[in-house]
């Protein structure tokens, strides 16, 4: 099988690597399909592989007595498993699964650990990515404690829009309810508010972003800080 070339990848971490660092991981990268519900990480067991997502969207969720709630979201900027593995650990108590199907480049945990042992610059890049996950999670905590369902939904839709081609987001209301930790009927109501203002259009099982600028205006300071931090840390923006 032909090896993946750095010029062909979409993952923003792989793109941001020096060519020497990319060469360290390249022999170990395996292209895999990631169907919906595919588990990238299972809670409380050692992470066997890390996945550089090339397309699709994954969610880290917390499963508690009151059900599942999303605590983190990643797409082609992400590396699943980075938090435990880069911090010298092997597991986390949350699960992480695909919520929008896609594909990724998979690397074994041992191979990745060997690569970061060999290259301080690779370790630094991936630790910077770990910081972006913290920033996003803290932003989510702030938003959940502070804002209305409409505003939280606007942020979530923007985060998804950043991670798909085109303007269609294949999500059902029931799924959004889980992601936002809100009753489904509350999500439906909030979607109708956004739709009435011309920001989105809803269809069965799909939401289309029709006016991103209006969505960003509504989201205000709930959206953007974590995204800017990623650009600064990973891409030197």
């Amino acid at each position: 099988m032909a090896r993946v070339q750095q010029s062909d990848v979409r993952n923003r971490l792989l793109k941001a690597m020096t060519s020497d660092d990319f060469a360290l991981v390249q022999p170990h990268l395996q292209l895999v399909d990631l169907p919906i519900k595919y588990a990238l990480i299972e809670p409380d067991i050692p992470v066997p592989h890390l996945y550089f997502l090339e397309s699709g969207i994954s969610s880290a969720t917390m499963k508690g007595a009151e059900g599942h709630v999303e605590v983190g979201l990643a797409g082609w900027e992400g590396l699943s498993g980075a938090v435990p593995v880069l911090l010298g650990n092997d597991r986390i108590p949350h699960d992480n699964f695909m919520q929008v199907a896609g594909h990724g480049l998979r690397i074994g945990t041992e191979a990745l650990c060997a690569a970061v042992e060999e290259s301080p610059s690779l370790r630094t890049l991936l630790l910077r990515y770990v910081q972006t996950e913290f920033v996003q999670a803290r932003q989510t905590a702030y938003v959940n404690a502070t804002y209305t369902t409409e505003l939280r939904l606007a942020r979530w839709l923007l985060m998804c829009h950043d991670r798909v081609d085109g303007d269609d987001l294949p999500v059902k209301h029931e799924f959004l309810a889980v992601m936002l930790g809100v009753q489904r009927t509350g999500v439906t109501l909030a979607l109708q508010v956004l739709e009435g203002a011309g920001r989105i259009r809803g269809r069965r099982g799909r939401i289309t972003v029709t006016n991103r600028e209006l969505l960003e205006q509504l989201a205000g300071d709930s959206y953007g800080a974590a995204e800017a931090e990623y650009a600064r840390l990973i891409e030197g923006a």
Partner: peptide
């Protein structure tokens, strides 16, 4: 749950 935890502009 809506009464206890949800804030919305519509209601």
């Amino acid at each position: 749950d809506l009464i206890a935890r949800s804030r919305t502009d519509a209601v």
